[in-house]
Structure formats: C-alpha cells, structure tokens
Design a protein around this nucleic acid. Structure first.
Lengths: 106, 106
DNA sequence: TCATGTACTTAGCAACACTAAGGAGTAGAC
DNA sequence: GTCTACTCCTTAGTGTTGCTAAGTACATGA
C-alpha cells in the first residue's frame, strides 16, 4: 500500500504494543509478523526505533536472552503502564474511526 | 479526546478534503464543522495550515469572495487531482483500518 | 470606542515514521 | 576455512505533519 507512512503516525506505537500484548516477543519477530500481516511498509529500522521509544516511555519490560540462531534477543512484554496506554490507544482509535465513518457518509 | 494529535497525522488532509468534496466551502466553516463533529482538537490554525498545504499540492480550486460578516472568504473546491487524492486516501484508510481490526482480534 | 465574532496568514516547534550505515553473532555452502 | 546469508540490534539524521502563537483585517452592536 502506497503512502501509508503518514497515516501510520500515531498508529504504529499502538500496533507494536498490541502485538507485544499478545505475548512476549522481540524486534525481529515483530517486523516479520507485520510484514506477514501485509504491512510491508513497516520495515526493520522503523520497528526498532518504535521499540526504543516505547521502552524510554516506560511502557515495556525488557529482558535480554540468548538466541539459538544469532545475537542476543531483546524480549519485550507490557507492564501496567503499557497495558493502560494500549487501552487508551484503542479508545482513541475507535473514536477517530467512528468520526471518519460519520464524515464519510455525511 | 486526549492524545489524538499523532493519530490525526495523515488523516487530517483526508478529513478536510472529504468535507470540501461535499460542497464548496472555506476555512472558518470547515473549522466549525469539525468542532461540531466532535473533533475539538482540530483548531483554526491547524485547518488553515492544512488548506494551504493542499492548495500548494494543487488539489484545490480557490476563489476569493466577499463575506457579509467579515473579511473575504477563500472558497475551496476539489479539482480532478483532489478527487483522485481523496479516493486514494480512503483506500489507504480502509486498508489500515482493516489491518487494525485483524491485529486486534489476532 | 470597544468588545466580539468572522476570516486568513506566517514563523517556528515537537513528534514521529523512515533511511542509512554499521556491528556482531550463527549456520551452511563451497 | 572462508564466504555468504540470515539473524538481531543500535544510532544519527531527515522530511512530513499537526499544533502554537502572534498578528492582520473587516463588520456589527453595545
């Protein structure tokens, strides 16, 4: 999908957080998952910058563990703040999506 | 709604364009309309900057006309490029909204 | 005359997705 | 045993965009 970048702003944090909420995971896996979902615009570098930002905001628990296949992995999971952020994110998303629908059929 | 700003990025151009598509209008009216819709985060200054950007991108026809109530109004309507942009915008929106739904119930 | 409402412009800021470049580990092919 | 491919993460910098702030200007009514 072309020109998705700007639309992703603000949504991407929620997207990543939502995937982590479904079970502890790490950057490389998240990237693959989003690619498989069809969000091919979201590439590796982008995912990592989002993760670092979320981490700095204190929304994630982090643990480094060895991988069998390469360098260490940085495993992420949601903490309470992350869970709360995610709830608020979906509220914002639903709000906007509702308005968009209203606007469209106005 | 709190913290909507980032989510609006990329969506706002589409929102404004969609409203103009429903009939020739001007900045001040668009602002009021969005406020009434419940998008109270979107204030005057923001709408005008979006309009200028859309105009620069060549998506709008512009015509200045007198108002009975104040300074001249700058009336906008969509041209062909604007119409096409809007169609593509909704395609992008639907694509993303679909992925968000998938992700959420995964 | 002074406040209020209408109507637009411009300069500058902060957040965010993205790019580019690189380092470092493991496995398998040759 | 070296080379390639894949895995996995980091950092510095860029462009776009929504927002803020400050200002200009016209009209109406108190």
């Amino acid at each position: 999908m072309n020109g998705l970048t700007e639309l992703l702003k603000g949504a991407l944090e929620g997207i990543v957080l939502q995937h982590i909420a479904q079970g502890e995971t790490y950057g490389y896996e998240i990237t693959k998952y989003l690619q498989d979902l069809g969000l091919e615009d979201i590439v590796e570098g982008t995912v990592y910058t989002v993760l670092l930002r979320l981490e700095k905001q204190g929304l994630l628990e982090v643990e480094r563990r060895k991988s069998t296949l390469g360098p260490q992995r940085k495993f992420y999971s949601l903490n309470a703040a992350g869970q709360e952020y995610l709830t608020n994110f979906w509220a914002r998303w639903d709000f906007l999506a509702g308005k968009m629908t209203q606007l469209r059929k106005a």
